[in-house]
Design a binder for these strands. Structure first.
Lengths: 144, 144
DNA sequence: GTGTAATTGCAACATAGTAGCATTTGACGC
DNA sequence: GCGTCAAATGCTACTATGTTGCAATTACAC
């Protein structure tokens, strides 16, 4: 394992949120940073194993919960009812998502959330809106 | 139990889709029609029991699958990662949904989906967009 | 180095949904 | 009405996803 974990971007990010710097946290965050897209617990677990990081299923869940609580990562629910995690790039999570109906991949779209005007029933209070685009991603569209 | 199941709106709807008219199907569809909002399998199960309809958990899943396959009902995933079912009122499911973050209730909003312009990465193909509004519903906002 | 509270790892539990298969039953022809 | 038969049901058992409790370990402050 690297002997200067504080030097990595992941380590810096964790320290900045007052968390203890542990093997699993650094590794998970590095996976998320490298992925550039949302991943399920399972995909993250596989990536950790590939990187030679021994870990427990529960620890992974708790690590991700901590990352979400610290505002470092965000969580969303896919059509397959599995939660997906990604790094929270810019504060509140106010940008559209694209969900590939073929492979289940979820990517964050860069453009800001377009303002939408919807009439809510009386008494309802709106906190935030989430725009989800469904379709087929580039890699799935090429291959069969 | 009623002795003329074909006479009910639920019975007519089922027959129109070439399905067999069974106790569970009629009862489930009646519950959905009466609800006016999306329900989880569990909520539907409770409603069935209240109506004195004996049923099995698996049968309920399969009944709901059939209803979705026949285009009579639609399915969506809530933040609690449970599937919710509702009657498909108007063909494709192209209207916004409101999700109450307090009680988890999901309601279909009547207004049509506003057109949104989002730039998709190259090679991505868009099928449909889903607009999800998060907030607190009227009944949750009143009571603590 | 030592103390201590945050993390981890394990086992058990919980919830949502699916699969296989024997039994029951709705629809249809008679 | 009565028999036939595939569709639908009701079991049991299983998978997948996620959570809880608790004892052992470990990062960090001193």
């Amino acid at each position: 394992m690297p002997d200067h974990p504080h030097a990595s971007p992941a380590g810096t990010l964790i320290a900045a949120h007052g968390g203890r710097l542990t093997r699993t946290r650094v590794a998970v965050l590095e996976v998320l940073l490298a992925a550039g897209q949302s991943l399920t617990h399972d995909e993250i677990g596989v990536a950790l194993s590939r990187n030679g990081i021994k870990h427990d299923r529960v620890t992974l869940y708790r690590t991700l919960d901590w990352l979400v609580g610290a505002g470092v990562a965000h969580r969303m629910i896919g059509n397959d009812r599995a939660r997906r995690f990604g790094v929270a790039v810019s504060g509140p999570h106010e940008h559209p998502h694209f969900h590939c109906d073929r492979c289940g991949k979820v990517v964050c779209l860069e453009g800001a959330q377009p303002a939408v005007a919807v009439s809510l029933p009386g008494g309802y209070r709106l906190d935030r809106t989430e725009l989800l685009l469904h379709g087929v991603c580039a890699s799935c569209d090429k291959g069969p």
